[in-house]
């Protein structure tokens, strides 16, 4: 293979690798057949980057509907998809959509390293933003297995608390939790280290580290907060189901 051909093949392979790492569909074509083993091994490498993969809560919900109805899901129009996205993101699990959020929950829900064993969430008045509140009878605090010191400052860390997926972001002593589901389509967001953004692989929309939409003309709702608490010894817990 000539140098030029090799460079061309390298460009092509990198595009495929970039898509896989961003969670997007693999767009390989018959023209890639010569490098199929390399592409398959790239897929294998990409497949282990998050450890043991699990279905997202949004996808699990979709499959449940599929199995119960026994037929493929209908294609959603934009309005229905937005409504579904908002509903799932706001509700995650539990019925946050059906249950109006109480006034005391609006604003930042974060946890500082607690001086006392059972710290209450730190609540600020602005910005106005929903918080996922699972039904009390279903909710429980999940130990994430993380210590505050495990969270790099300003870098989201994905965790699950039962059926709720969340990104935890530490700023100094404060840990904030927010939903890991996009508020557009119910897709799980992926942290892009190079861009410092939480990217939605379904439509390439993004949120910043604070969970705010980066789209200027058509800003999406911010990611709902998820309740977090930090025990006296620094263990991070998330309210899930």
């Amino acid at each position: 293979m000539g140098e030029r051909d090799e460079r061309k093949a390298a460009e092509r392979l990198d595009r495929l690798v970039g898509d896989a790492l961003a969670g997007r569909h693999l767009k390989a074509t018959p023209s890639d057949a010569a490098d199929r083993e390399a592409i398959q091994v790239a897929a294998r490498l990409a497949g282990v980057r998050d450890g043991y993969p699990r279905m997202t809560s949004a996808f699990r919900r979709r499959l449940t509907g599929l199995l119960e109805r026994g037929e493929p899901p209908r294609v959603l129009n934009r309005r229905a998809a937005l409504a579904a996205g908002l509903g799932l993101a706001a509700g995650a699990v539990g019925d946050a959509v059906a249950s109006p959020l109480s006034g005391q929950l609006e604003g930042l829900v974060a946890a500082r390293r607690a001086p006392a064993p059972a710290p209450s969430p730190h609540v600020q008045s602005t910005p106005k933003r929903p918080t996922i509140e699972p039904r009390p009878e279903l909710s429980r605090w999940w130990d994430t297995g993380l210590h505050v010191a495990d969270l790099a400052d300003g870098i989201p860390h994905r965790v699950t608390a039962g059926a709720i997926g969340a990104f935890l972001v530490r700023r100094g002593d404060t840990v904030t939790g927010m939903s890991s589901v996009c508020t557009h389509y119910p897709c799980e967001l992926i942290w892009q280290e190079d861009k410092k953004l939480l990217n939605c692989p379904c439509h390439n929309l993004a949120f910043d580290v604070d969970g705010q939409s980066t789209k200027e003309n058509y800003a999406l709702p911010a990611l709902p907060y998820v309740r977090v608490r930090v025990s006296a010894d620094g263990r991070v817990e998330v309210l899930g189901t």
């Binding site: 997007r24 398959q40 897929a43 990409a46 282990v48 993969p53 799980e188 992926i190």
Partner: peptide
């Protein structure tokens, strides 16, 4: 997922 390496195709 371990074989296709991306969430979209795995789903």
């Amino acid at each position: 997922f371990a074989r296709v390496g991306n969430r979209a195709d795995a789903e």
